[in-house]
Simulated assay, not measured.
Amino acid sequence: VQYCFENINGSCYKTPWSSGIRITSYVVLGFLTILTLGGNLMVMISIAYFKQLHSPTNFLIASLACADFCLGLTVLPFSSIRSVETCWYFGETFCRFHSCLDASFCYSSIFHLCFISVDRYVAVTDPLIYPIKFTVPVSGIFIAIAWTFSLVYSFSVIFIGANDKGIQELVNALSCVGSCQLVFNKTWVVVSSLLYFIPFFTMIALYSKIFAVAKRQARMIEIMSNKTQSSDNYSDRVGRRERKAAKTLGIAVIAFLVCWSPFFISVIIDAFLNFITPPLVFDMIVWFTYSNSAINPLIYSLFYPWFRKAMKVIVSCKMFWLDCSTMNLF
């Protein structure tokens, strides 16, 4: 039996992984961390540098990238060590602070995704007055709400210990020196889950309406421009348009659902069934959730040609000796 701290009574047990498993785990988790940092940093630099990208929608995307970048910079490195070593070596106070940052950036990412869906809904369903409704100040209000609420909620609940009130006996039974596992009582589990499910169902509803409008517009365009074509060719073209719209609009919702749902389902089950999820399984679920921060740049940026063009300029370092900030990216 190995302990996290050999000379301290009440130390947690340490899982003795083989060298091959530890090295492989560090490589995989390190790659995910670097992908999260690099992808989101590229998004932030692109939108901040190129003036043509200064729009309300892109400011939301840049703020989303900032939340995911902060998660990769301040949370994932310490979580990687905890996962591979199966011990927390950074103290109880920093454990609380680390958990607060973790929750803050994750909830901020969720709210940004929800606000982006609101932005896209207004743009598609009401394109004529969209520039009047969704301005830079409105985008700034959404960004401020996402950041302020996430930070205030996370620090007020976790850092002061409100999350484990009423279950002190269970906390004492599960706690040991070298552990950094937060336990939530049923009340805060329900509240935290609602902060996930409400944005999720909002995104589902909005993207469903967006898809319906896009499908209707695709049919109208085909009818107006291809009246002389055969009905078979017309049906094929409309079908391709609808599938493309479904893929583009649904990929964000699917990624969000796949990455986040297992975590909140596990948390709810643990709260009401006395934490039956094995630690290793729960840790894998947490990292699966973290992967959404690495996927976000691919979904909201790499699918846009302007981002690929901006990335080539940044990677080639042309921005340092040429005035590329006003170049045409579209």
Rank of each mutant, 00 (worst) to 15 (best):
S179G: 11
S11D: 11
S18L: 10
C95E: 06
L195V: 02
E242M: 02
I61P: 01
T228W: 13
F275N: 14
A245T: 07
S225W: 09
G239T: 06
G10W: 02
S117R: 08
I221K: 13
H112E: 01
T289H: 06
I47R: 04
S266Q: 12
N233F: 12
A67H: 01
V1N: 12
T202M: 08
G38N: 13
T74S: 02
I223T: 10
P305I: 11
G239M: 03
A255E: 04
S301A: 15
S139E: 07
P262G: 07
F69M: 10
F303A: 12
I34Q: 07
T74Q: 01
V27A: 13
C12G: 05
E6V: 07
I145C: 01
A48Y: 15
A212H: 09
S179F: 07
K165H: 12
E222I: 04
V27H: 03
S11R: 08
Y13M: 10
F78C: 03
G38D: 10
G30M: 12
Y3P: 01
M220P: 01
F211K: 05
P279I: 04
S301Q: 05
Q52M: 15
L113V: 03
I21Q: 15
A65Y: 05
G239L: 03
V124Y: 04
L302I: 11
R216T: 13
S293M: 06
D236A: 06
E85K: 03
G72R: 00
G20R: 09
K247V: 05
N7I: 00
G161W: 13
I204M: 12
V138A: 01
K51C: 09
W321L: 10
F264Y: 15
A65N: 05
T187P: 06
V258T: 13
I254R: 04
T36F: 01
L71S: 04
S261M: 14
F111Y: 05
A271Q: 13
Q229P: 01
N185E: 12
R241D: 12
I314C: 11
N226M: 15
I198N: 11
